[in-house]
Structure formats: C-alpha cells, structure tokens
Design a binder for these strands. Structure first.
Lengths: 293, 293
DNA sequence: GCCAAGCTTCGCAAAATACGAAGGAAGACC
DNA sequence: GGTCTTCCTTCGTATTTTGCGAAGCTTGGC
C-alpha cells in the first residue's frame, strides 16, 4: 500500500525543488527526507527523482507522481478546515436521488416530513436507476427513491425497503370532471382525454393491465415522464391523469383539480434504497419511519 | 499536519460500514483501527463517527471528511499504476504556454529543435500572462513563452531568460513586393497595405516607434493578435507584415511571400519562463540551449 | 585544486503503529 | 427477562517506522 507520508515528502521536495529546501520547509533533517523518498521510489518500483547538477530533477514517472500528489495534498490540506466548517455549520445536507419514472408528486409527499427541518439543504438528483445506485454506493447520495424494488445486491451494501404502496386515483380539471363522470367511473374514462406516465414506469404497466381487465379503451392525449409536469398540463385542461393517493392530497386544493375516482388493484409503489445500516442519515431515518407509520 | 494513515483507516471504516469489516478488509486488529481513527478525530478536533446501534454512523463532519478522503484515496490508489504507465511509456510530454501577443511564428521556430523528438506529445496552451504564470507554478506547464520579460518573482520560484532577440523584417505577397519596393524600403511601406500586430504586443510598440522616427504614415489594413493568422492573410494578398527574422526563414519558401526589407532598431524578443532549476524538463533545456546558440 | 552546497549512508534513539487480553454496550434470539 | 452474539473500547507491551547526528560522496564554482 502506498505510504502517504513518503509521498508527502516527495511532493514537498518536488515543490521546493530540492531536498535541502524541503527539509528546511518541513523543519526536518535532510537525510530523513532523502531516505523516505527513496522508500517511495522503491515501493513504486521506479525512480522519481534523478540527480541533476547538484540538485535533483523529476523523471517522467516523477512528473506523473507529482501531478497526482498535488491533487491529493491539495484536498488533504483543505480537509481540516472543511471538517471544522461542516461541524460548526448548522445546515443539514440531504442528497436524494429520484429514479426516472418515479412519481415526483409522491416523492414530494414522502420527503414532506423533513422539509421543514431548520437549516436543511436538500439536494435532489434525477437519473437512471443504475447510475443512482452507483452514486449511492459512492456516498454521493443519502437516499434513492425508485418505483421498483432494487435487485438486492449484497456486494454494494445497500438495503431496499418499500416506502409506499398507495392506491392510484384519477384527477382532472374540475370542468371536465362532472358528477356524471364520477358516477360512471371507471367507464367514463373512455369519454375523457387521458394523460399517462410513459411506458418505462411501473405505474404504467399497472394501468395498462387495469384498462385491459376492464375492457377500457382510453383516449390517450399525452404521455409524461414526470408526474408533476403531467399534473400541470392536466390542471390547464389537457385531460385526466392518474396519481397515487398519497401525494395527491393537496392537488384538489391547490390546482383546481377534482377527484374523478380510484382504480381498484392498481398501486403505485415507491422503494427507498439506502446505504447499509450504520451510515444512515438522520433525516433518512426520519423519512423511513414516517413512511412506515 | 494531517495523518493520512489515520485518514485511510477512517475512510475504510466508513466505506465498509464498521470497524469490524474494515479491520477484516485491512487484515488488521480491530482495536488498532479504533485507536487510529480516534487519533484522527482528536487531531481534527471533531467527532467523525458516532455510535449507532451496535455499529457506527458518520456525523455531519464525518460526511465531509469522508467525501474528501474518497477524493484523496481514489487518486492515491491509481497513482502506482499511473507511475508505472508513465515509466514504461515512451512518449515525452511537453506542455508549453504561449502568452497572448507572442509571435506564433517565432514560437514555432523556437520549439522547432524538439519537434522531431520521437514520441513527443506537445501540449500548447494560450492564455493571459498571469494565468500562464500560475499554471507554471502549479506544474501544469513546463515552459511559458512570452513577449516581454517577466517581473522576477522569487516567491513563485520561476526563472526568466531571454530566448530570442531577433531583428524584425517585413514580408508580403510576391506580387506586391517588387524590386522597386525593396529598393525604396522603408519609405515604400507607405505605398503598401500594412498588417500589424495588435496594440497589446511589445512588438507593436517597437514598430510604432519605428514608424514615428522615420516619419512614416503606413496604411494599416489589418491588426492581428496572432502572427500565424497575419501571415496567412498576407499570403492571400491582404498586405505586408512584420515578423521576426528568426522564425521567418521558411516563409518565403512555403507561402509565396517575399522579403521586403528589415527594420533597424526594432527587435522582437521572446522570453522563456520556467520552473526553478532542478525541475526542468529535458526538452526545455534543449530548447533553451538551442536558442542561446 | 580547493571550497561550498547538496545528496547519501550508517547506526542508534524516539515515536508511531500493531496486537493480545480483558471489558462494556447494544441488538438478536429464545 | 436471560443469554448469546456482535461490535466497539481500553490497557499494556512488542514491533515497525520514523527521525537525527556524524561521517562520506558528488558536483559546480572560484
């Protein structure tokens, strides 16, 4: 394994342009530096410094090593202050990944419990499931919300829980959704313009099944990746759309949308993927606890 | 100073999700890891891991430290291989910064001696003088060529040498530069369309002086930052232009340009700025040696 | 040819790192 | 509730690494 102390001395020698200067800067004996750098060279199997006149110069390998060392120690020298900052700072960072195809409205509902955390800094990141899983493993994310259960992968040390399993309801603009439409639901849906999630989502599969079972042939006027966008277009009169009941609570109030009816046997599910136990974010635990309740 | 060994153990503990796993992975006793990580916390002055159930979890400070550590050790783990690659690779990297306002033709002439180095990988980077100086100090460049002497700055450990001081000559397309024009040079220049370097360059100042001293009022049809571009436009018939004699040797041959005449008392100078002695690139030395000859 | 600056080698002291043994704390399981 | 297992911690000691004084060795300048 690479010895970072040796590397540090090598870095300083390169930066200062010689053992003597480096030793002075480090307030150490010159021979110590000399020996330790030699150790580094031995462990890497290549000469990094070569004698040049009465000083030393970098070899090609040394040039590369120096460039990397520069990167390492630039981060390293800033680390203590970064830690102090983080410790004194009151803001709590929470990085959430939202998998493509997840209902943004439901995601928002799930994150709701922590949104009023004082000094919260919420980072929402969308992307492909695989990519998010990677970022989670690399600790760039604290939590990933996804529409389908993750293939449990013990290598990555991730755990997956179902956070939400909510019946799906239909909403639409009030002027389209009259009493007659509600009464004759679900058949009435054939007489209404319909917005659907795109085919990539788990919810779409469930809905297609539901249409098929009931022998319904809906008139699809739009397909949306994003449920929030879908609800916006619906509110502007484009048509009626499905959404999980949880997360739809405030739709009627806030956007002039009316409840049309509820699907039987169609549920939207959301799964939470997170790092292995023991590295959890307090807010993540809060979200999971609230969702379980 | 930050102890990278401690940091490494902390990183591994975070990554593996516990002391026990980390110890197993590192093939070390668990208590060693425990103590060393505690040392890191002590030296940083903040707790990085907190007990959680029967494992441990990252604190906010720990989260930050872990992110930095990830950066550090990702570089570090790739370093040995990078060094091996560099050592076995035969290509020689030479990164040269060309200051804005320098004559590209002269720069090319100066770099000429090393251009036929086998397996050369030449990186040419243009930019403001200050910026290039910074990159030089950060070892991202091996050499900076500039039109004016650098203010010697002992802090940055850079040295500056005059590489070239060459008389300035005028070239123009052969059909413009007839024998009569050559004979009546420099007065004939008033009867020719003239291209000049832009006002930012040292060469331009010298030329303005020269015009003034001789009482010449040239008809300026173009100003160029870039001498190579200027020579291209000149070759296409736009006008006559000044260029340092060195670096102009092949102009007449290759581009249908003819020598008009030579300025008295106007020189183009090029300075080489490089890192302190002992960190020099072999090719840089070659360039300097050749230029001095 | 001599001096001064700079790197290297050698042998020993100091410091850090590492581990066995023993102890405590928190879920898991009956 | 009791017991078991897993995990983290503390303590005392062995081992390794790191650091330094003293004495070479090489190179360039005078």
């Amino acid at each position: 394994m690479l010895n970072y102390r040796h590397l540090y001395y090598f870095w300083m020698v390169s930066k200062e342009g010689g053992f003597a200067r480096a030793a002075e800067r480090l307030d150490m004996a010159i021979q110590t530096i000399s020996v330790q750098v030699r150790e580094l060279e031995k462990s890497l199997g290549h000469q990094l410094l070569k004698p040049e006149g009465r000083g030393v110069a970098l070899t090609e390998a040394g040039r590369v090593a120096f460039a990397r060392a520069e990167g390492i120690f630039q981060i390293g020298e800033a680390l203590p202050e970064a830690v102090r900052d983080a410790a004194s700072r009151r803001v709590v960072r929470l990085a959430v990944g939202l998998s493509d195809g997840i209902s943004k409205l439901a995601a928002h509902a799930l994150l709701g419990p922590v949104l009023d955390t004082p000094d919260l800094r919420l980072i929402c990141h969308e992307g492909e499931f695989e990519q998010l899983q990677t970022e989670l493993a690399l600790h760039r994310l604290d939590l990933v919300l996804t529409g389908q259960a993750a293939p449990s992968n013990p290598n990555l040390r991730l755990s997956c829980d179902r956070l939400l399993s909510s019946p799906v309801v239909w909403y639409g603009p009030a002027y389209l959704v009259g009493q007659d439409m509600m009464d004759s639901f679900p058949q009435s849906i054939e007489r209404l313009p319909v917005l659907l999630p795109t085919g990539h989502s788990a919810l779409r599969s469930g809905l297609d099944h539901w249409f098929n079972d009931l022998g319904l042939k809906p008139q699809v006027v739009g397909e949306f990746e994003d449920s929030a966008l879908m609800s916006l277009f619906a509110a502007r009169g484009l048509g009626v759309f499905p959404v999980s009941r949880r997360g739809a609570d405030d739709l009627a109030r806030s956007s002039g949308l009316a409840l049309l009816g509820e699907c039987e046997n169609v549920v939207e599910e959301i799964y939470a993927i997170r790092n292995r136990r023991g590295e959890q974010h307090p807010l993540v635990q809060q979200i999971l606890a609230r969702a379980a309740a």
